[in-house]
């Protein structure tokens, strides 16, 4: 009885050929003389065989391959769509930047023509060799000097 408890705990591994040689000898020797453990082994073997009953019929060779191909094509399409949408968003975000810069530049050109004429006046004044006071220079730069 003591052996039965030990052997029955080993039977699952024995069935799978996964116990060491010492335990294998113990189980094999015990099975010769014990009908109860033989019955237990037969029941475990039947459980093992029952699980194999769930084995499915083999699929056609390319069944999953073609499903996977379809999936991968869909994935790529989605990625492309996503990246194009991303580009669209990016361009929407980036287009206003140069437009604003150009608009501001034009506005500056229109609104401050005097500054440029004053700069040329300053250059002319300096090039003419006349002595320029700090007030004259500041006036020319700020557009107050005539």
């Amino acid at each position: 009885m003591k052996d039965c408890i030990k052997v029955q705990r080993l039977l699952s591994g024995y069935l799978d050929n996964e116990i060491n040689s010492e335990d294998t000898s113990l189980v094999a020797g015990h099975l010769v003389i014990c009908a109860q453990c033989q019955k237990e082994l037969a029941e475990l073997s039947r459980v093992k065989a029952d699980i194999l009953e769930l084995m499915r019929k083999p699929l056609p060779q390319d069944y999953l391959v073609s499903r996977l191909r379809d999936d991968l094509v869909d994935e790529r399409r989605m990625k492309e769509r996503f990246s194009l949408a991303g580009l669209g968003n990016l361009s929407r975000r980036l287009i206003p930047v140069p437009v604003t810069v150009i608009a501001l530049s034009i506005a500056l050109l229109i609104l401050s023509p005097g500054q440029y004429s004053n700069k040329s006046s300053l250059d002319e004044h300096i090039l003419s060799g006349n002595s320029a006071t700090q007030e004259t220079v500041l006036g020319l730069i700020l557009g107050t000097e005539n």
């Binding site: 699980i51 769930l54 084995m55 499915r56 083999p58 699929l59 060779q61 390319d62 069944y63 999953l64 391959v65 499903r67 996977l68 191909r69």
Partner: peptide, 26 residues
């Protein structure tokens, strides 16, 4: 694809035994 062909039936048997639902196994 060669790997899929080689393992598809083994994988399906495992999945089917684990979840018990043919429809979802594939």
């Amino acid at each position: 694809e060669a790997l899929v062909r080689k393992y598809q039936n083994k994988v399906l048997n495992i999945v089917y035994s684990l979840i018990g639902r043919d429809r979802d196994s594939e």
